[in-house]
């Protein structure tokens, strides 16, 4: 499939730059020749049908795919000009810089406080004052502080689904990342909790670069600045969300977002 150049917008000074990215699981190719740039401090949504490679691509950005057997990557992904697949790169540092929030919230069976500072403890930070401040700041950024400030030492497992997901966002934010990857963060939440997470994403925008995979197209339209449509491992169209959802350039995108797909 050959794509017109105009359907894939080029971003001036992208923070994440993807060039001719190909990814193989053994003999099977999951991503094909993806090239585009993701701007800093904006929300970029990845949409496309199940199995099109959205999550696979997302996991490339902080090298979560490293341990997958038989996986091979060609091409490059650079973040702030640094090739993240460079063997000399410190993966722990990369994952500090590029945080991740998953579809199913995954707090540790520890206190709310310990969950937030987990990354900081791994980084060797022990000063109580620093940790206390990080907890307050991160929970405030995740819009959870007011709800949990009086029970920080209680187990995180007692929180509601929406609160647990916001706790995971606080945990990601605590290590001061530059980029936050979100893999369908609202797919298991009720509409009210979804709305709170979306509001949170709006607030975090500007401070962090957010890349979100979502199956909910209305959500992509609501919260993102740019949208990438992927199909069968290829990037079909990429551009400003407003344009993609009103006047998409490619028929494939049109068919998918209007539900004529398949």
């Amino acid at each position: 499939m050959s794509h017109s150049a105009t359907a894939i917008m080029s971003i001036e000074k992208p923070q994440v730059e993807v060039e001719h990215l190909n990814l193989f699981y053994g003999n099977s190719q999951a991503l094909t020749d993806m090239s585009f740039g993701i701007p800093a401090s904006q929300v970029t949504a990845l949409i496309g049908p199940s199995g099109c490679g959205k999550s696979t691509f997302l996991r490339c950005i902080n090298r979560m795919n490293d341990l997958v057997e038989g996986l091979r990557i060609e091409g490059s992904i650079t973040i702030d000009g640094e090739n993240i697949n460079d063997p000399s790169l410190d993966v722990i540092e990369l994952r500090r810089k590029v945080g991740m929030v998953f579809q199913k919230w995954n707090p540790f069976p520890k206190s709310i406080y310990e969950n937030v500072i987990y990354g900081l403890r791994i980084a060797g930070i022990k000063e109580r004052g620093v940790l206390d401040q990080a907890v307050e700041q991160s929970l405030k950024r995740a819009a959870l502080w007011d709800e949990v400030k009086d029970r920080l030492q209680q187990s995180a497992m007692g929180l509601s689904g929406g609160q647990m997901q916001r706790l995971c966002i606080a945990r990601a934010v605590a290590v001061n990342p530059e980029i936050i990857l979100m893999d369908e963060p609202c797919s298991a939440l009720d509409p009210r909790s979804t709305s709170r997470i979306e509001e949170l994403i709006r607030e975090l925008r500007g401070e962090y670069t957010i890349i979100i995979v979502t199956h909910n197209m209305q959500q992509a339209a609501r919260i993102s600045d740019y949208t990438a449509y992927m199909y069968l491992g290829e990037l079909i169209e990429y551009g400003p969300t407003q344009k993609l959802f009103t006047v998409p350039e490619r028929k494939e995108t049109e068919d998918y977002i209007t539900g004529r797909f398949g």
């Binding site: 209305q218 339209a221 959802f245 009103t246 006047v247 998409p248 995108t253 049109e254 977002i257 209007t258």
Partner: peptide, 9 residues
């Protein structure tokens, strides 16, 4: 239906 693209237009 929350239409988009050509349906919205």
């Amino acid at each position: 239906h929350q239409p988009v693209a050509s349906d919205l237009r």
